[in-house]
């Protein structure tokens, strides 16, 4: 019977095409659509904050350099991962991540909670030449980041596009994107206060690469690394894992 039926559809190209589309559509629909309708999929986290323009720029550099090829940002629900890296990652922690950077390979360690684990100085030294601080490392050196000025003229466009895909940036944030990026890495400047005003008191305002005379890609990437795992405390609230949520940096 089944075979007779098959003998029919394998005689018409269009019928075969439709059959393939039908057979291949089911799985994706059943698995993807409910992720938008089942409420528990993304936990509630009222304290969740947005990436500042500088952190977003850093995130884009992280994407550009392909750090995700070696680093995951997803602590799995396994005892050893929680003990090594901290509370397992929640979906809400990457709620504003377009795209997500969960990764699929750990040539280097997980970075989901690396924010404030090390000093800015260490991050800069490590990115400049990983083997100067970790002789065993096989991570590439990214010395050029500190030499490359950060492009800020398109930050408004970046924030606006983020809003188009659903991240709640306000007009005010978009308008001031370039100034805020500058201010966040230049604590003594007039622009610094606007950053905390728009993005919250807990925002880290520092000379991330140690130099205030120029805003570099190193500033942006370090600012991003130092915020990883610190957008919300949600992961620490409902777990028996002993780690405590990080204190805001003053």
């Amino acid at each position: 019977m089944a075979e007779l039926f098959h003998r029919k559809i394998e005689r018409t190209a269009i019928g075969f095409v439709l059959a393939i589309i039908a057979a291949a559509s089911v799985g994706g629909i059943v698995e993807i659509a409910p992720l938008f309708t089942i409420h528990q999929t993304v936990e509630d986290a009222p304290d969740m904050r947005l990436y500042t323009p500088l952190e977003l720029a850093g995130r884009d550099i992280y994407v550009r350099e392909g750090c995700y090829a070696c680093h995951s940002q997803m602590i799995r629900t396994l005892r050893d991962e929680v003990e090594r890296y901290g509370p397992y990652s929640l979906a809400v922690e990457s709620k504003y991540d377009h795209p997500m950077l969960w990764g699929s390979k750990r040539t280097g360690p997980d970075l989901a909670r690396v924010g404030d684990k090390y000093s800015d100085l260490w991050q800069v030294a490590h990115l400049t030449n990983p083997r100067s601080v970790v002789p065993e490392s096989n991570m590439p050196s990214y010395a050029f980041l500190a030499r490359t000025p950060l492009q800020t003229d398109d930050l408004r466009l970046r924030l606006a596009a983020q809003r188009d895909v659903g991240v709640p940036y306000t007009d005010d944030m978009i308008r001031n994107a370039a100034q805020d990026a500058y201010g966040q890495a230049t604590p003594d400047s007039d622009y610094a206060s606007g950053v905390t005003q728009r993005y919250g008191e807990a925002t880290q305002v520092r000379a991330f690469d140690g130099v205030t005379t120029e805003l570099t890609e190193m500033d942006a990437l370090v600012a991003y690394l130092q915020i990883l795992g610190r957008l919300t405390d949600a992961a620490y609230k409902h777990t028996a894992a002993p780690q405590k949520p990080p204190e805001p940096v003053k």
Binding site: D116, K117, S119, L121, P242
Partner: peptide, 11 residues
């Protein structure tokens, strides 16, 4: 010199 605090990450 900046040495991080480990109060939060370690018991």
């Amino acid at each position: 010199g900046h040495m991080p605090t480990w109060d939060e990450r370690l018991t």
